[in-house]
Each structure stands twice: as C-alpha cells, then as structure tokens.
C-alpha cells in the first residue's frame, strides 16, 4: 500500500492503495468514472484511453503510481469542453459511433491528434488512431469525422 496523490477531472485525489493497481480500475471502481471502458485489458484496443497531462494513455496498462502528481482527465469531464463538442458533432454527422463502446477512447485520441496536428492528412489520422479498435464502423466514418472536426475546429485552440 502507498499514498498516491493526483488530480482526476479537476478534483484532487488521495488514495491509500496498492501502487500497481491499474489506473483503469481506480477510475472506474474507486472513483466511478464509467465513461472509461475496458475492451481488452492489455493495451490493444484503446477503449480505456484517458488524458494524462494532455497525452493519451491506455489506463489499463498504467499502474496508478505512474500518475502520481499528474492530472488525469476522462471522457466524463472532457465531454463538457468545446473541443469535445466539435469532435462529437463531427462523429454524429459522419456516423462515427455505432455501438459506442470504442467512442470515448476514439474521441480522446482524436483530441490529442488535433491538438498536435490540427490539419492532419488521412494517413496521419489512420496512424494516430491505429491503437484504437472499432469493430463496428470499419473506420470509414471515424476517419471522415476527424477530418470534419479538423475543418470545423479551424478557428479554435485545440
């Protein structure tokens, strides 16, 4: 057991916990942020993606000790931002979400991509999202949604 301090969705958190506990379990089971999904538990699908100091992390592979002193944002909070709105509207318009299980992770990774590269090419989008599995859409609508989000977000600071 160890004391770990970090920030989740703007709230300071202090936990007395086994430091190797998966961040995914901490977020879902201890803190109740159910927007973070478990698709594989081994870093293969990206459904569990969260922002850690602005970078996308697979929370299933991240021991909670690794986020000590850092700021974690999950979809449960990110969904209140204008950046989310632009991405979500683009996903809705293009049909980028079917069953929706991959979608929170896709949206987090889309955000990180657009922050670094606001006008990505198709190839760059496919590369950036290649760690996120979607079994429903064949990715067509997702890739197009990222293009639409890029276009619609041309005037905002990602």
């Amino acid at each position: 057991m160890a004391k770990i301090n970090f920030i989740v969705n703007h709230q300071p958190i202090e936990l007395d916990i086994n430091p190797s506990t998966r961040l995914l379990d901490v977020l879902r089971d201890y803190l109740g942020f159910k927007g973070v999904k478990e698709g594989c538990g081994e870093g293969a699908c990206g459904a569990c993606s969260v922002l850690v100091d602005g970078e996308a992390y697979n929370s299933c592979l991240t021991p909670v000790a690794n986020v000590a002193g850092k700021e974690v944002i999950t979809i449960d909070e990110f969904n209140k931002t204008p950046q989310y709105r632009i991405i979500a509207d683009a996903f809705a318009e293009m049909g980028g979400s079917q069953c929706g299980f991959c979608t929170p992770g896709m949206i987090i990774n889309t955000y990180v991509l657009l922050k670094k590269n606001p006008f990505p090419s198709e190839e760059e989008i496919r590369f950036a999202l290649s760690g996120n599995i979607c079994r429903c859409t064949g990715y067509n609508a997702i890739v197009k949604a990222v293009m639409v989000a890029s276009e619609n977000g041309r005037n905002i600071v990602w």
Partner: peptide, 14 residues
Amino acid sequence: KIDNEEKMAGEALF
C-alpha cells in the same frame, strides 16, 4: 441516432 450523444459522452451505461 437516439443514443448517439450518451454513447459518445461516455454516459451510456453498459
């Protein structure tokens, strides 16, 4: 789709 927004926002309960 009816359930689009809640799924994208991570609010739909699986």
